[in-house]
Amino acid sequence: MNAAATAGAAGPLDVSIAAKAFTGADGARVEVVRDLQFAMPSGCFGALIGPSGCGKTTVLRMIAGLDADFDGTIARPGRGRLAMVFQEPALLPWRTVDENIRLCMDAAGVEGRGLDAMLGMLGLAGHRARFPSELSLGLARRVALARAFIVEPDLLLLDEPFVSLDEATARRLRAELAALHAATRPTTLMVTHDVEEALLLCDRLFVLGGTPASVVHVMDVTVPREDRTDEVVAALRRDLAEARSSHG
């Protein structure tokens, strides 16, 4: 949507976490991640997948800089400007749709020339003066997407962005996300427990597993995104399962 967005966003995302532990309620250290490594080139759309509770969101929060309590290094692409879509839309309830988006634009120092077009594409044009409490969950999630893309991030993080939506709405939102990503191609990492969702949207899948968690499998999806029909996704899913079982 913004041609300028791709300019400075060079450099890979390079994640190398030696260890991450939480202190439990009884004071014992519980190690949740060990020797977790993966990398993505600039402009890549990656997915962290794995069963619920395997540490995906923990890893994403470390990459976002929201959790600095770990051993390891994380190199973020470009100038390191971040955007994130959270599991909940996390909009400021006391600010309108427009104000919510503009706040992030102002903080990032972007002009947001593509804003009108982006809001039109997401079907938000008529909702700009509304407060978040007046929006459906689907609309609120779209605002969260718009807020994330409009800041022209070097790294976009998505934490289960379509969880608890009905399937039809989730489908539409996935298509809109794909279109937004295709327009500006920020380096993007999505956490999801939905393998089909990852296969439909992403270029590269990182499968997390084990306790403590690490990357147990990496899969590149080379089929162009527009060709990924239900049948293709189903075939890709079989490939993934086969590759993982042959891995051991």
Partner: peptide, 23 residues
């Protein structure tokens, strides 16, 4: 959760206080 938003989008102290904390 709103604190996370302010941190990820680099709100800075003044913006965070005015738009996230005080409300």
């Amino acid at each position: 959760a709103l604190d996370d938003v302010a941190r990820v989008f680099r709100f800075g102290t003044a913006r965070r206080l005015r738009h996230v904390v005080v409300p």
